Lab assay of single mutants.
Amino acid sequence: GIPATNLSRVAGLEKQLAIELKVKQGAENMIQTYSNGSTKDRKLLLTAQQMLQDSKTKIDIIRMQLRRALQ
């Protein structure tokens, strides 16, 4: 079985993952909103794209940590 310490770690990672998935969803929504907007929305679009990139990276890292914890 999986050690108890790993189980609480997994629960924490799953919570983090859920949050990051919401951030990713929000960033994707912002990108959709701003991509057909005016030029003043360009900065917001770039910010949203950066957020999305960061979020995807975090999600990958969390998933990797989850896999390790579940081994």
Results as ranks from 00 to 15, higher is better:
Gln16Ile: 07
Asn29Glu: 13
Leu45Gly: 01
Arg63Asn: 09
Lys43Ile: 12
Leu7Thr: 08
Val23Met: 05
Thr47Ser: 12
Arg68Asp: 14
Gln25Pro: 00
Asp41Cys: 07
Gln16Phe: 03
Asn36Val: 05
Asn29Pro: 00
Lys15Glu: 08
Val23Ser: 06
Thr5Cys: 15
Ser8Phe: 03
Gln71Glu: 08
Leu21Gly: 01
Gln49Trp: 12
Pro3Tyr: 02
Met30Trp: 05
Gly12Gln: 15
Arg63Met: 13
Ile31Gln: 01
Arg42Met: 13
Leu44Asn: 05
Ala18Phe: 08
Ser35Arg: 09
Leu44Pro: 04
Ser8Arg: 07
Thr5Ser: 10
Ser8Lys: 08
Thr47Asp: 11
Gln49Tyr: 14
Gln53Asp: 06
Leu7Asp: 10
Leu44Cys: 11
Lys24Tyr: 14
Gln49Asp: 01
Leu52His: 02
Leu52Cys: 04
Lys58His: 03
Ser38Met: 08
Gln50Val: 08
Ala27Phe: 13
Gln25Phe: 06
Arg42Cys: 15
Leu21Ile: 07
Leu70Ser: 06
Gln65Asp: 05
Ala48Cys: 03
Ala48Arg: 00
Leu70Phe: 05
Ile2Ala: 12
Ala11Thr: 08
Ala11Leu: 12
Lys43Ala: 13
Leu66Gly: 00
Ala4Trp: 03
Gln16Thr: 03
Lys43Cys: 13
Ile59Thr: 01
Leu21Thr: 03
Ala4Gln: 11
Val10Lys: 03
Gln25Asn: 05
Arg68His: 10
Gln25Cys: 09
Ala69Pro: 02
Gln53Asn: 05
Ile59Ala: 02
Asn6Ser: 07
Gly26Glu: 15
Gly37His: 04
Ile31Tyr: 03
Thr33Lys: 15
Leu13Trp: 03
Ile61Glu: 12
Gly26Met: 15
Leu17Glu: 00
Ala48Ser: 02
Ala27Cys: 13
Ile19Ser: 07
Met30Tyr: 04
Arg63Ser: 05
Thr57Met: 14
Lys56Pro: 00
Ile31Val: 08
Asp54Ile: 07
Leu13Val: 00
Thr33Phe: 14
Lys56Met: 13
Gly1Thr: 11
Leu7Ser: 07
Arg68Thr: 11
Gln50Tyr: 04
Gln53Val: 09
Leu13Met: 04
Ile2Glu: 07
Leu45Lys: 01
Met64Val: 08
Ala27His: 07
Thr57Ala: 12
Ser55Gly: 01
Leu66Lys: 01
Lys43Tyr: 06
Gly1Ile: 10
Ala27Arg: 02
Glu28Gly: 01
Thr47Leu: 14
Ile59Val: 03
Gln25Gly: 02
Ser38Glu: 13
Asn29Trp: 13
Leu66Glu: 01
Glu28Met: 11
Leu66Thr: 01
Glu28His: 03
Leu45Asn: 01
Gln50Leu: 09
Lys22Asp: 05
Arg67Leu: 09
Thr33Ile: 15
Thr33Trp: 14
Asn29Gly: 06
Lys40Ile: 09
Gly1Tyr: 06
Lys24Gly: 01
Val23Trp: 03
Asp60Phe: 13
Tyr34His: 07
Arg68Ile: 14
Ser55Thr: 09
Leu17Met: 03
Arg63Phe: 08
Val10Ile: 15
Leu13Arg: 00
Lys56Thr: 12
Pro3His: 10
Met51Asp: 03
Lys15His: 08
Ile2Leu: 08
Leu7Tyr: 02
Gly26Asp: 15
Gly26Trp: 13
Ile62Val: 02
Gln71Cys: 13
Pro3Ala: 07
